[in-house]
């Protein structure tokens, strides 16, 4: 018997060896891993700056083995702009939730994209405000019950879910925009590829890259991890179609 077993799966080097605070079944952890794998792939952890936003992902400085600047709620793309302009040779990414990016921070994300800043933005869409206890988000689906839409989101008075990957992709300054999910092995493999692409665009100096990742919030959805994962495929993907919305990154 061969005792020299080859290790085929391990913690990415860009992640610290610590336990996260995420709830069971929360996909922030999976998405963190994909970000870390992309950094490992390009061997850039020593030159990467992460911008932490306000939401359940605020502690990313405890999880990623990289330099981090914390931004106020919604302002990560502006903080990232300041950082990247000072250190253009470093790789700068922001990691933002849907309340952070698509509500309070719409102005900052649109203008950073429109200026074509050399940044990578990871946008985690879980259709709710996780950290503050499951209030309605701009991405909450029609009819979805949240703590501030107790009878379900009424589009007549509360508007429609915002499709950020499409919106950002429509801007001339944006080089790459895509939406992925991590609810199945197939989708995770696609997501990992898109994640690498989102970093590669910046590394090649090809412009602004935006990656929307559909995610779960079992705690605030009031679902088991499995049911929450199922909801991504059954309810979210039909409203938020996966795919690449913009790819001008070829040089």
């Amino acid at each position: 018997m061969n005792t020299q077993m080859k290790q085929v799966f391990s913690r990415p080097d860009s992640l610290k060896d610590v336990q996260t605070h995420f709830c069971p079944g929360c996909q922030h952890g999976t998405i963190h891993r994909l970000v870390a794998e992309a950094m490992d792939h390009f061997a850039i952890k020593d030159k990467t700056i992460g911008i932490a936003s306000v939401g359940c992902s605020v502690f990313l400085y405890d999880y990623f083995d990289i330099d981090v600047i914390e931004a106020p709620h919604g302002r990560a793309p502006a903080v990232a702009t300041g950082a990247k302009r000072v250190h253009p040779e470093r790789v700068v990414f922001a990691y933002q939730g849907d309340g952070d990016l698509a509500a309070i921070g719409t102005s900052e994300i649109i203008h950073a994209a429109n200026r074509g800043e050399q940044l990578t933005i990871i946008f985690v869409n879980n259709t709710t405000y996780g950290m503050t206890g499951g209030q309605m988000a701009p991405t909450t689906l029609p009819g979805q019950v949240t703590s501030t839409s107790p009878t379900g989101r009424d589009v007549a008075s509360q508007g429609y879910p915002m499709k950020m990957a499409e919106l950002i992709g429509s801007l001339d300054g944006c080089s790459y925009s895509a939406r992925v999910a991590v609810d199945s092995p197939k989708h995770v493999i696609q997501a990992a590829k898109a994640m690498r692409k989102a970093f590669e665009v910046q590394i090649n100096g090809a412009g602004f890259a935006f990656l929307e990742v559909l995610s779960t919030c079992p705690t605030n959805w009031g679902m088991s991890p499995l049911a929450a994962n199922k909801r991504v495929g059954e309810e979210m993907i039909p409203y938020f179609p996966l795919g690449t919305y913009k790819d001008n990154s070829a040089v």
């Binding site: 700056i49 903080v79 300041g82 000072v86 250190h87």
Partner: peptide, 14 residues
Amino acid sequence: IASINMLLGAAACG
């Protein structure tokens, strides 16, 4: 709002 946060990012980078 964006300008003060750009300043924050630049300042954090020294």
